[in-house]
């Protein structure tokens, strides 16, 4: 195997590009793909203040590293979800990376701030762990991005993630979600602009990027993930990809080019009639937002006392201010 750029010995093959790369030219290829996504979808500029959601896994550390190397101004945001040892270790990886590169990491700990953790809280609230977790993360990402005055929130969703979510939404014809599955969601009242600069890179490439760059990331899977549908969609797509390299890319980018617009109207109806959550101020169609309802049902406490919580609340020093 020879590098397509320099003909030196290659370390990785990327079958959908029909190319092999040496370490140096593989890193260049990753940068090129990220830069292309940023430009093509007008994600942000070097003047923007960027917040990247960091989990300690390969994708979020890779995108943080890529953006810093490309000269952007990026802080990290870590959300502690109280998933036992997994959360402790993932925080160590996020902190270690931030420290080696001298970067700022914002940390929010769900158990000490809201009084519940994902494994127990999701059980109490009768929700699937990943759904309670996803809801909490999305809410806290938005809140921290707005609170910190960031222009844009970056997440580490890669091509496999987007293709798998698209696969699930198509399989069940969740048309209300299809119009929103875009690499850029513009800012609107109470929500930051959200972007996914890794959409042109597959998971295998983000993991390889970390290995080649010597970035230590948490390899072990979250214990809550086992058996979830997202993983089965990913392996189904990888079966297809193995027989037909490029299938995931054309599925997702073909959707963006030729289909997403058909679902825009439905997605925008969904965004109308938003008011402010009576508890935290986040945008919501109900009186209390989905996250604050989850906190109460999970047996936790809301940091701002509004009478929503049944339990007397000890207001921790960790949270001030709300999104309005």
């Amino acid at each position: 195997m020879k590098c397509v750029t320099c003909r030196g010995p290659a370390i990785i093959d990327i079958r959908r590009h029909n190319s092999n790369f040496c370490a140096e030219h593989f890193l260049e290829q990753c940068q090129r793909q990220v830069r292309k996504a940023i430009d093509e979808f007008e994600m942000f500029t070097p003047d923007d203040k960027i917040l990247v959601a960091v989990s300690g896994g390969k994708d979020s550390l890779a995108i943080w590293d890529l953006l810093v190397d490309l000269g952007y101004n990026v802080d990290g945001l870590y959300i502690g979800l109280g998933i036992g040892e997994y959360s402790d270790t993932s925080l160590d990886y996020a902190r270690a990376y931030a420290q080696t590169r001298n970067l700022h990491l914002v940390e929010v700990d769900v158990p000490s701030t809201f009084g519940f953790d994902i494994p127990n809280g999701s059980r109490a609230a009768k929700r699937v762990p990943c759904s309670a977790c996803g809801l909490s993360k999305r809410h806290l990402f938005d809140e921290e991005a707005i609170k910190g005055g960031y222009d844009v929130l970056v997440t580490g969703h890669n091509l496999d993630d987007e293709a798998a979510v698209l696969f699930g939404n198509t399989l069940h014809w969740h048309t209300e979600y299809l119009g929103r599955q875009l690499p850029v969601l513009p800012a609107r009242e109470g929500f930051p602009k959200k972007v996914k600069p890794l959409v042109r890179l597959a998971e295998r490439e983000t993991a390889a990027y970390c290995i080649v760059k010597g970035i230590d990331y948490l390899v072990d899977e979250c214990p809550m993930a086992a058996g979830n549908k997202h993983l089965s969609y990913k392996s189904a797509l990888n079966e297809i990809e193995a027989m037909s390299p490029g299938a995931k890319h054309s599925f997702y980018f073909g959707f963006l080019d030729r289909a997403a617009a058909f679902f825009e109207v439905e997605a925008s109806i969904d965004r109308e009639g938003l008011g402010a959550c009576a508890s935290c101020g986040a945008p919501t169609t109900s009186e209390i937002c989905a996250f604050c309802r989850l906190v109460v049902r999970a047996g936790g406490q809301l940091p701002d006392q509004t009478g929503v919580s049944a339990v007397p609340v000890d207001l921790g020093p960790t949270r001030t201010g709300s999104v309005q």
Binding site: G134, D160, A164, A225, N228, H230
Partner: peptide, 10 residues
């Protein structure tokens, strides 16, 4: 042999 597929749907 390192798996590269990660879990959560969010």
């Amino acid at each position: 042999i390192r798996p590269v597929i990660s879990g959560g749907a969010s």
